[in-house]
Design a protein around this nucleic acid. Structure first.
Lengths: 81, 81
DNA sequence: ACACATTGTTGTATATATACAACTTTATGT
DNA sequence: ACATAAAGTTGTATATATACAACAATGTGT
């Protein structure tokens, strides 16, 4: 299968949490460099790892990951008004 | 990372749709044997493939996949009454 | 200017997901 | 009983995700 690229909001969610990649890596249980690859969307996380991110951020998969590019959070908020 | 097993309702959702593994495989774009491996939970689908299943079943990721064993649908219905 | 933390880059190694083929087993219909 | 479809088994090959190391680049605080 030609695997599609999955987009994510991990970098923003991590920044809003005020933690480094190293700290996030410890929380989800992967190498800190793996966080870099995923934030840059150089490859997709496994389904298991995706669930771990959602646990840390307290968000559903569909909010953190999507098959089309993510809108900025600021824009999402305006739309909901 | 020691990848956790992810549970899924693919077999049941497929049966309710009345299609074979071969047909489901065509819809999501993988080999029909891959469907078998995933239904038996011998390995986890990629995040991309997980999204494709959800498209076919019109269900959110969290309903189709979970980190703890899935309850039978019949039981879910009773709980919501 | 210096130290230090954070991120990006390159390279290698391993684990896991997916494809594909051949064969067996189980079910279904006639 | 036979034919056929569907599902499971075993094996090999390839692609992708993850780990890890070493080093470069960038930023931040003092």
């Amino acid at each position: 299968m030609e695997s599609r690229k999955i987009y994510n909001r991990i970098a923003i969610l991590r920044l809003e949490m005020g933690i480094s990649r190293k700290e996030l890596a410890e929380k989800v249980g992967v190498n800190f460099q793996t966080i870099g690859y995923i934030e840059r969307e150089e490859y997709n996380p496994s389904l298991d790892l995706a669930f771990r991110f959602c646990d840390v951020f307290h968000q559903p998969i569909e909010f953190v990951f999507s098959t089309s590019p993510q809108k900025p959070l600021s824009q999402l908020i305006q739309e909901n008004k």
